[in-house]
Design a protein around this nucleic acid. Structure first.
Lengths: 150, 150
DNA sequence: CATAAATAGTTGTTTATACAACTGTTGAGT
DNA sequence: ACTCAACAGTTGTATAAACAACTATTTATG
């Protein structure tokens, strides 16, 4: 019976919108839990993964720290510290920009690219999770979520 | 153009499912940010609000700590400490169960109920956020999200 | 050119989260 | 009744998130 069962709620939601808020939060938390478990063997968090994906998207061009913050799913995380964690693990390099010494340019390293190649292999696992819904349903979800935020 | 624009992604997603993962995470983070801002004037976090809602749902019956954990959206949060925070603020009371002294019974207080009555008034604000989508679209989202987790 | 404002990151501090280890209580099996 | 496993919460600790204050650099303005 869906989300009511997941949160053991006896009463019905007052309306579809109330239910939707809870449903989105719950589903996201559920997905995030799976992402954490998936990435654990690689020693990175979903947020760190997010940063590496952004860097790969720009490769071989560098990305500025501010751009990372701007493009991250969770805007509130501290990009400086996230990047430092990834640098310590050797997945990226950072350099103060010669032209504008306020800004820091960041590149993904071969080791970082290699890591993403490994995690890419997990996408088959993810597709299994999503096999429960049709492609048209995924499209419909994407459409309505985009509309919701507009 | 939707989520691609929100995360400033130039390239297209490889498929609707990849896009959906990002879209769900992003939308949830966006909603959560609004919830934090909404609840800030009342001095509680979304998680604490979630606990109070569970308690109100059972009122005047008590709820056991384990049930709270079980019914929470974010299962990983530490219910003991969440409850203690709310107790300090006077929104709930807790008592060791006479019949089974391992378990702790928790009730929402009149002050807690009053707080929820105040926050209920905000639901009008929330409906404004959701006015962008139709009721049938909300139903469709709920249906597909439930299916996704099944 | 001197100063102020804006920009780009960094650091400090408080609070929250994740996960494991721990305490106390009850129930089951012998 | 005694032992052990299961149960219900709590506490410790390491890591991360939230938010504001701070430093350094560049750009704009008089």
């Amino acid at each position: 019976m869906g989300i009511e069962e997941d949160i053991r709620q006896q009463k019905k939601f007052v309306n579809e919108y109330e239910k939707l808020i809870v449903n989105l939060m719950f589903t996201s938390s559920w997905l995030d839990g799976m992402r954490i478990q998936n990435l654990k063997p690689f020693g990175i968090s979903p947020q760190q993964y997010n940063v590496l994906r952004i860097l790969r998207g720009a490769f071989p061009e560098p990305v500025r720290l501010a751009d990372i913050t701007d493009r991250m799913i969770d805007k509130n995380s501290n990009a400086t510290r996230l990047v430092e964690k990834l640098r310590q693990k050797g997945f990226l390099k950072r350099e103060i920009c010669k032209q504008n010494r306020r800004q820091v340019d960041i590149w993904i390293t071969p080791k970082g690219l290699e890591l993403l190649t490994e995690t890419d292999k997990l996408s088959g696992e993810w597709l299994k999770v999503f096999k429960t819904i049709q492609k048209t349903e995924a499209q419909e979800l994407n459409r309505i979520l985009d509309k919701l935020r507009s």
